[in-house]
Design a protein around this nucleic acid. Sequence first.
DNA 1: AAAATGATCAAG
DNA 2: TTGATCATTTTA
Length: 216
Amino acid sequence: MKEDIHEKNSMEILPCEFYNRDTLEVAPGLLGKYLVRVIGGHRLIGKIVETEAYKGPIDKGAHSYNYRRTPRTEVMFGPPGHAYVYFIYGMYYCLNVVTEEYGEPCAVLIRGIEPVEGEDYMALLRYGKTAHDLAVPRRINLTNGPGKLCKAFGITREQNGKPLWSNDFYLAYGEKVEDSQIARSKRINIDYAEEARDFPWRFLIKGNPYVSVPVK
DNA sequence: AAAATGATCAAG
DNA sequence: TTGATCATTTTA
């Protein structure tokens, strides 16, 4: 059986080539990977448990649909492996990783994370309280959504366009996830996207409690 | 079910 | 310049 070069258990940083592939391979491939963020003298680590693929050229759910190029979508046209962070609903940030070759405006939205290290500081960033003081449902609530995890990891427009191999902000191999542990579904909250609304481009680790919305 | 809250973008 | 929209979350 052939070894998949994109899967291994390790804290090694993901190489740039990881992202330079079809978005529908990168999105499930990101499950189990670790997001690492150094902020305020703390190191935060979280395991990615839910992602969504956005393929701008053909995807009416994507900000970059039909190669729509604006100040906001600009970084998606750039090289793969960089962060695309956008501000939404006047209140929240969402983190994406840019995929595919330079000029192809595609990305993967990170929708759910399981805290691995630094949960107290995540809780502090989210609520101004340590996780120790939170009931279990609220601990789950820390990072189970795209806006929540950005708040918990201190991710803002400052990270927009940053490579995902920065000292204080990177992705590592983390934990191997078998294909049999991955579930798929339609994407969340893109009812405006016509036929693309039904594309099964959302990927989750089966049974993981840190997903934003349970699989239907 | 509906509010919160402001950047974003296409249209005028 | 304006106004509708929005890859969400919280509260009720």
